[in-house]
């Protein structure tokens, strides 16, 4: 069992994976409670545009993905707060728009290959030392922001207007949250893949909500579920040579079903 830790690439994958599980589940709690689940899916597709550009132009895809995801997250937040459009409609438009854009960039650049596949579905083999540095640096920053503002964000999830009237800087914090989510998603693409990261953000929280416990405990259960799914998913991925994103997502869905059953009234 421990032999899997002997490989450098697995050590890197585990460190990156645990950090991503932590970030995805904590930010996911806020996103789900704000009824903004589709945001993660949309930004994952936006990040894919960055990956496509990176692959075709020969830049580090992870970096370009972070930048493009940030750009789209701000665009979404701007559209949502400035126009009276339905936010889920905005998200759908941007989701399909970015996917279309990514496909065109990839086709024109002739980058349809294995490495694209790993960005879509995740791969434990792909985390380079350089990636690990990027993931750790940005990831710690994102985690810090989430923890510092968790009380305020929780209040906003509960009731945005009442939070505003209580003097909470709602606009700024909403902006900060989408920014952090954009970064987390771009970082997660390596391990979970852009088509599957949405699941790792949303499902652990939805599973944790079934336990009907207070806010802190919900977040804690969601974190445990995410960590366990990533661990189990990566080990399975290693032994059966499967894309890690797929094994992680199936693990988290299993936990979700388990939560549904044991909490059934």
């Amino acid at each position: 069992m421990l032999e899997i830790l002997e490989y450098d690439f697995m050590q890197r994958a585990f460190v990156a994976g645990f950090l991503i599980a932590t970030l995805a589940s904590i930010s996911g709690t806020f996103i789900v409670l704000k009824r903004y689940s589709l945001l993660s899916e949309t930004l994952a597709h936006s990040a894919l545009v960055g990956v496509a550009v990176g692959l075709v132009a020969g830049y580090n895809p992870l970096w370009v993905a972070v930048i493009v995801a940030l750009f789209f997250s701000w665009l979404i937040e701007y559209l949502r707060s400035s126009f009276s459009l339905y936010s889920d409609a905005i998200l759908s438009i941007i989701l399909s728009g970015s996917l279309a854009l990514a496909v065109i960039v990839v086709s024109l650049g002739g980058a349809f290959n294995n490495s694209l596949f790993s960005y879509l579905f995740g791969s434990i083999l792909s985390v380079s030392s350089e990636d690990l540095v990027t993931i750790t640096a940005f990831g710690s920053l994102a985690l810090g922001v989430l923890l510092i503002f968790s009380k305020e964000l929780f209040f906003i999830c509960y009731d945005e207007e009442v939070a505003k009237v209580s003097g909470i800087k709602v606009k700024f914090l909403n902006f900060l949250l989408v920014t952090v989510v954009a970064i987390i998603i771009a970082l997660s693409i390596r391990i979970v893949g852009s088509l599957l990261i949405g699941a790792l953000m949303v499902i652990p929280t939805v599973a944790a909500l079934q336990f009907r416990v207070g806010f802190k405990n919900t977040m804690f259960i969601s974190l445990l579920f995410a960590l366990f799914s990533v661990l189990f998913g990566m080990i399975t991925s290693y032994y059966y040579s499967l894309p890690s994103g797929a094994t992680i997502v199936l693990s988290v869905i299993t936990l979700f079903i388990f939560s549904l059953i044991i909490n059934k009234k």
Partner: peptide, 14 residues
């Protein structure tokens, strides 16, 4: 919504 009565009342202090 995953909040206890105490979670909600505490929001008043934030």
């Amino acid at each position: 919504f995953p909040a206890t009565v105490q979670d909600i009342v505490k929001m008043g202090r934030i």
